[in-house]
Amino acid sequence: TEHYTFHTEEQAQRAAKKFKKQGLPVTIHEKNGKFTLQVN
């Protein structure tokens, strides 16, 4: 499991699309105004 932190939801969504294209499951969590992208 890898985690990436982004300052905006837009950045997180863009990164999520790249991972999803590779067939990886992705979840985004919002915490304290930051967005954490979790790749399993």
Results as ranks from 00 to 15, higher is better:
8 T>E: 04
36 T>D: 06
30 E>G: 06
29 H>F: 14
37 L>T: 02
38 Q>L: 13
11 Q>Y: 04
32 N>S: 05
20 K>I: 14
15 A>Y: 08
23 G>H: 04
3 H>Q: 12
17 K>C: 09
16 A>N: 01
4 Y>P: 04
20 K>E: 14
7 H>S: 12
38 Q>M: 13
10 E>L: 09
35 F>Q: 01
27 T>Q: 08
15 A>E: 06
19 F>G: 00
32 N>Q: 05
31 K>Q: 11
7 H>G: 09
24 L>N: 04
3 H>K: 11
26 V>G: 02
31 K>A: 12
36 T>W: 14
24 L>Q: 05
21 K>E: 15
40 N>H: 14
36 T>K: 06
16 A>V: 05
10 E>P: 05
19 F>I: 05
25 P>S: 15
2 E>Y: 14
36 T>E: 13
28 I>V: 06
28 I>T: 02
17 K>D: 14
31 K>W: 13
8 T>Y: 04
24 L>D: 02
33 G>Y: 02
1 T>E: 09
35 F>L: 03
8 T>L: 04
4 Y>S: 04
6 F>Q: 00
4 Y>D: 04
7 H>L: 12
23 G>A: 03
20 K>F: 09
17 K>Y: 09
11 Q>S: 08
31 K>E: 13
35 F>I: 04
10 E>I: 08
24 L>K: 06
34 K>R: 09
12 A>Q: 00
37 L>E: 01
20 K>M: 13
13 Q>V: 11
22 Q>D: 07
15 A>M: 08
23 G>Q: 03
38 Q>W: 13
22 Q>L: 13
28 I>M: 05
25 P>W: 15
16 A>L: 08
22 Q>I: 10
15 A>R: 03
23 G>W: 03
1 T>M: 11
12 A>W: 01
36 T>Q: 10
13 Q>F: 08
6 F>S: 01
4 Y>R: 06
13 Q>I: 13
4 Y>W: 11
12 A>E: 00
13 Q>D: 05
25 P>I: 15
37 L>P: 01
23 G>M: 03
28 I>E: 01
33 G>S: 02
7 H>N: 14
19 F>Q: 01
11 Q>D: 13
8 T>Q: 03
13 Q>H: 08
14 R>E: 14
6 F>L: 02
13 Q>P: 00
37 L>D: 01
36 T>Y: 15
26 V>Q: 00
15 A>W: 09
2 E>A: 13
37 L>M: 05
29 H>M: 12
17 K>S: 10
1 T>K: 10
25 P>N: 15
9 E>P: 06
12 A>T: 02
31 K>D: 11
23 G>Y: 03
25 P>Y: 15
21 K>V: 09
9 E>W: 15
19 F>K: 02
39 V>Q: 02
29 H>A: 09
15 A>F: 09
6 F>K: 00
10 E>F: 06
33 G>P: 01
34 K>S: 08
36 T>F: 14
6 F>Y: 10
28 I>L: 06
27 T>Y: 07
16 A>H: 03
4 Y>G: 06
36 T>G: 04
24 L>W: 10
3 H>W: 15
6 F>M: 02
10 E>Q: 09
3 H>P: 07
20 K>P: 01
5 T>W: 13
17 K>W: 11
35 F>N: 02
34 K>N: 06
31 K>G: 06
15 A>V: 08
12 A>M: 03
39 V>G: 02
26 V>T: 07
20 K>N: 08
22 Q>S: 06
37 L>R: 00
24 L>M: 09
15 A>S: 04
18 K>R: 10
8 T>M: 03
21 K>N: 11
14 R>F: 07
6 F>N: 00
29 H>T: 14
33 G>F: 02
1 T>G: 10
18 K>Q: 10
16 A>D: 01
4 Y>E: 04
27 T>G: 03
3 H>T: 14
38 Q>R: 07
29 H>N: 08
4 Y>N: 05
27 T>H: 07
4 Y>K: 04
16 A>G: 04
2 E>I: 14
9 E>H: 11
38 Q>E: 14
4 Y>V: 05
3 H>D: 08
4 Y>T: 05
33 G>D: 03
7 H>Y: 11
39 V>E: 02
6 F>D: 00
6 F>G: 00
28 I>K: 00
24 L>H: 07
38 Q>A: 08
18 K>L: 11
20 K>Y: 10
8 T>D: 07
8 T>P: 00
5 T>F: 11
4 Y>H: 06
13 Q>E: 10
31 K>L: 12
7 H>Q: 12
8 T>N: 07
3 H>N: 10
1 T>S: 10
15 A>K: 04
34 K>Y: 11
10 E>D: 08
7 H>F: 10
9 E>L: 15
18 K>S: 07
10 E>A: 12
29 H>S: 11
12 A>G: 00
1 T>Q: 10
29 H>K: 09
27 T>M: 08
29 H>V: 14
34 K>E: 09
16 A>M: 07
26 V>P: 02
18 K>W: 15
23 G>N: 05
32 N>K: 04
36 T>H: 14
14 R>L: 12
19 F>W: 06
2 E>L: 15
21 K>S: 12
24 L>F: 12
35 F>E: 01
20 K>S: 08
33 G>A: 02
24 L>I: 14
12 A>I: 02
18 K>A: 11
19 F>A: 04
29 H>L: 13
37 L>H: 01
24 L>P: 01
10 E>T: 07
9 E>V: 12
38 Q>G: 04
30 E>H: 10
36 T>I: 15
38 Q>T: 15
10 E>S: 07
3 H>E: 13
6 F>V: 01
15 A>N: 03
18 K>F: 14
